[in-house]
Design a protein around this nucleic acid. Structure first.
Length: 469
RNA sequence: GACGCCGUGGCUGAGCGGCAAAAGCACUCGGCUGCAAACCGAGUUAUCACCGGUUCGAAUCCGGUCGGCGUCUCCA
């Protein structure tokens, strides 16, 4: 069975066949560096991190490129407001971005090109487009001539004439068509600028992605990803520029767009999370409240093309579900009573099949997660029946591996009570002796008092363990 | 106005023409335990928004209604 991917271009699920067998060129839209990222961004990056991990499980060699847009109107404005250079501003947010991605177990991309790093190529593409009649220069600006591109609108499925009716920005009378967009903008005094054949200026908003793709991947790529909010105009324009410049179609074979995360606010109205609207939850704040695994499990529990409204209560519910998966991969029982049982192995194999079938269908993470829960239950059941370690281990390895495809570590959360550990162990030992002496009232008191301090004791056949509650 | 998306048990959320409508959270009862927790088992909440149609058969397809949402040069 082939992997199927929903392609925004065709609005259909298509069999995935990359240009080069076994290799995938993946480009994911990265952040504009004028602010930290919020969990909506993180959702997109987690989705495509999962896509990448799954492609690898499917045997593909993936080259993943993610851009940093470090020159743009808002960045310039923010840098001026903060009285720093755009380089310094970008550097600050890039460092923070990488830290936050690491924390969320989002694998690093193979390359992180920056818009300001591809200025010569941007100029080259712009010149090429002018030479081919796809662009024109006016007073230091260069615009793309949308009427020259008969395919314009094919990604967002819009007709040029229909769009003009809804245009709500002031029309620049110098442009041949209101929909023509800037490839290069003449710089205003005090703004960062680069020399070009059209005078001092800087890139428009869309051209940098065409240039970075061209530099990192070449004329054509396999998968281009991003949020649904950048389908138009950003990706539409990117296609127009790239295909007009290289003459090769399609620029990207599969366009994947994740639905937008919403944030339920106090009035219970749910709006798209957006830096412009102001209803954002910074990744940093989300990480302060929730474990990375819980955040990922929560975000992936809905299909990536279905809108999701973030609530802390739902993330907490996901965290409790995560506990079951964690419990299943804990150390196997050291008892050797039961014979090695093949039933559990069959469950593991079946889970792998269900997982792959779910992910093959346009990355069906909700069903993939359900399969993981099914396997966890079987493992726990087998352990409850005193299954031997060698029976549990292969199934646990499968669970770990598949959870890993979703970027879940299943690691115990870092204890904030490491300092207290020796004292807790001491209390546990004291309590063990009390229990041995049937002094249950005192033993229960210790357990109860520790619980109040956020330490949960669990008595098992092999003794008592504790965790931060 | 144009182009789309969504409405499934208390909550989250799969399924998208035909096995008893996944899975998680919550809840109830039972097992295990000195008692708990964790885990396991059993179970309760579903007129699949509403109306009509197509079909042997629809949550799933078609038409309409109501409600919610996205994009239409700020946006992951």
């Amino acid at each position: 069975m082939p992997l199927k991917i929903h392609n925004t271009l065709s609005r259909l699920k298509e069999d995935f066949v990359p240009h080069a067998p076994g290799r995938v060129a993946l480009y994911v839209c990265g952040p504009n560096l004028y602010d930290p990222i919020h969990v909506g961004h993180a959702f997109s990056y987690i989705v495509f991190d999962t896509v990448k991990r799954y492609l690898r499980l499917r045997g593909y060699q993936v080259r993943h490129v993610q851009n940093f847009t470090d020159i743009e109107d808002r960045i310039i404005a923010k840098a001026q407001k903060d009285r720093v250079t755009i380089e310094a501003l970008a550097g600050t947010y890039i460092a923070r971005f990488l830290d936050e991605m690491d924390a969320l177990n989002v694998e690093r991309a193979d390359a992180y090109p920056r818009a300001t790093g591809v200025i010569p190529q941007i100029i080259e593409i712009t010149r090429g487009l002018i030479a081919k009649g796809f662009a024109y220069a006016i007073e230091g600006d260069v615009y793309f001539r949308v009427r020259q591109d008969p395919d314009y609108g094919k990604l967002s499925h819009r007709a040029l004439d229909a769009m003009e009716a809804g245009a709500r920005i002031e029309i620049d009378p110098r442009k041949e068509d209101p929909m023509d967009f800037a490839l290069w903008k003449a710089s205003k005094p005090g703004e960062p600028s680069w020399d070009s054949p059209w005078g001092k200026g800087r890139p428009g908003w869309h051209i940098e992605c065409s240039a970075m793709n061209w530099v990192e991947h070449g004329d054509q790529i396999d998968i281009h990803g991003g949020g649904q909010d950048v389908i138009f105009p950003h990706h539409e324009n990117e296609i127009a520029q790239s295909e007009a410049f290289t003459g090769k179609k399609p620029f990207a074979k599969y366009w994947m767009h994740n639905a937008l995360l919403r944030l339920a606010d106090d009035t219970s109205a749910e709006d798209k999370m957006s830096r412009h609207v102001g209803n954002t939850l910074w990744v940093k704040d989300a990480l302060a409240r929730h474990a990375p695994d819980a955040i990922r499990l929560y975000l992936l529990s809905t299909h990536y093309r279905t809108p999701l409204a973030w609530t802390d209560a739902d993330v907490d519910a996901a965290a409790r579900g995560l506990e079951r998966l964690r419990a299943a991969v804990k150390d196997a029982s050291p008892f050797h009573g039961a014979p090695r049982d093949v039933t559990l192995l069959q469950w593991a194999d079946q889970t792998r099949e269900k997982f792959v079938a779910a992910m093959d269908d346009d990355f069906g993470t909700p069903q993939a997660i359900a399969a993981l829960h099914d396997l966890a239950r079987e493992i726990n059941r087998a352990r409850g029946a005193s299954a031997a370690a060698e029976t549990l281990a292969p199934a646990q390895a499968t669970l770990r591996e598949l959870a890993g495809v979703l970027g879940l570590t299943l690691a115990e959360p870092e204890s904030k009570m490491l300092q207290a550990a020796p004292f807790i162990e001491l209390l546990i030992e004291t309590r063990r002796q009390l229990r041995a002496a049937k002094q249950f009232a005192l033993a229960d008191q210790i357990r109860g008092e520790l619980a109040k301090l956020g330490v949960v004791l669990e008595d098992g056949p092999q003794g008592t363990t504790w965790k931060a509650g």
